[in-house]
Amino acid sequence: MKDWAGTGRAYADSYAALCVGTAGFVLDELGEARGRSLLDVGSGTGSLSAAFAGAGWNVTGCEPEPTMREIAVQEHAGIPVVDGALPQLPFQDGVFDAVVANFVLNHVAEPRRAARELSRVSADVVVATVWTNSPTWLWREVCDRAGLSPSAGERLPPEQDFERTVDGFARMLDGAGWRGTRVSEITWTWSAGVEALWVSAEGGVGGAGQFYRALDESDRAAFRAAFDAVCSERTVDGRVPLEHSAAMAIRSRR
């Protein structure tokens, strides 16, 4: 799976703004907060946790990467962040009213086991998202322009993997015991700054960042030139509007 070690600052300055784009959709599904407890699993640098806290939830973050936790504590003081990772969370059964895993189940080695663990620590509702149209498409375009072969990325074994579609996500969760789950597709546009996009690549964030870091000096130069050309063509009013979509699953005990 992807190596997120040391990427906290780069992630905070780039993809954190993209991933928090699900906040409004998730909050609509969670209903009124009324001070109830919420666990944000894979909370990263804390942007989504902060959105939930701002809506009235009593939020705890859970994040295994220390550079992510460090920034979350610095930038979102008052929201506790625990060191923990799927598939074994350091919490008792049903201790949180709500549990959210935003773009987490697409990164774990055992997605069904991880989904069961999310359900275990929730007393009421669980919401999880996975990419159906991720940032990968932009970087493939950059690679094509640069004449580079994009990395195929690490795949799960067939018995663990699942189709990254609404139906595929639903089938995987059904296999994990999430009966009666509602799964739908959400779409939003991230108006990204060019510098933020480049920070993600240069900072080693995600598959594109790891691909870029593995290139030699000549190929890095070609990659950067292609990136500049693609962004120049896509820029509108100084920013690059990029449409993304995700499958969002909601399991409620109500």
Rank of each mutant, 00 (worst) to 15 (best):
D174N: 08
V240N: 01
S252W: 13
A226G: 08
R251Q: 12
S151I: 06
A247I: 08
V199Y: 02
D216M: 02
W190E: 02
Q160Y: 10
L156M: 08
V166T: 03
R213E: 14
A196K: 11
E217G: 04
A208D: 09
I186N: 05
D167L: 11
A201H: 00
E154A: 12
S149T: 15
E217I: 07
F169Q: 02
R179F: 12
T189L: 00
W188R: 01
D237K: 07
I186Q: 15
L242G: 01
Q160T: 02
T187F: 02
R145D: 11
R234Q: 13
P157V: 04
S149N: 13
A146W: 03
V166P: 04
E185L: 13
T187S: 14
V194N: 10
Y212G: 05
W188F: 15
R234C: 00
S191I: 03
D219V: 11
Y212A: 07
R220Y: 14
M248W: 05
L156Q: 09
G207A: 13
A176M: 01
D161L: 06
G209E: 10
L148N: 03
G209H: 05
R224H: 13
C231N: 07
T165A: 06
Y212K: 01
D216V: 10
R164N: 09
E243K: 01
A146Q: 10
P158I: 11
A192E: 06
I250C: 12
V240H: 02
P157I: 00
W190N: 03
G153S: 05
P157M: 04
P157D: 06
P150G: 06
D167Y: 05
A249M: 09
L156R: 12
V194Y: 10
R251W: 14
G209Q: 08
S245W: 08
F223Y: 15
E195A: 15
E154P: 09
C231P: 05
V236W: 00
E163S: 11
V205Q: 04
T189I: 11
A176C: 04
E163Q: 13
D161M: 11
L156E: 06
A170F: 03
W178T: 01
A225G: 10
A152F: 10
P158H: 08
A222S: 15
R220H: 13
R239Q: 13
V236C: 08
G209R: 04
M248I: 13
G238W: 01
F162W: 14
E195Q: 14
G238P: 00
A214I: 05
L156S: 03
R182T: 12
L242C: 05
A249H: 07
R140E: 15
S218K: 14
P157A: 06
F162T: 00
A246Q: 03
D144L: 12
R171V: 11
G204D: 05
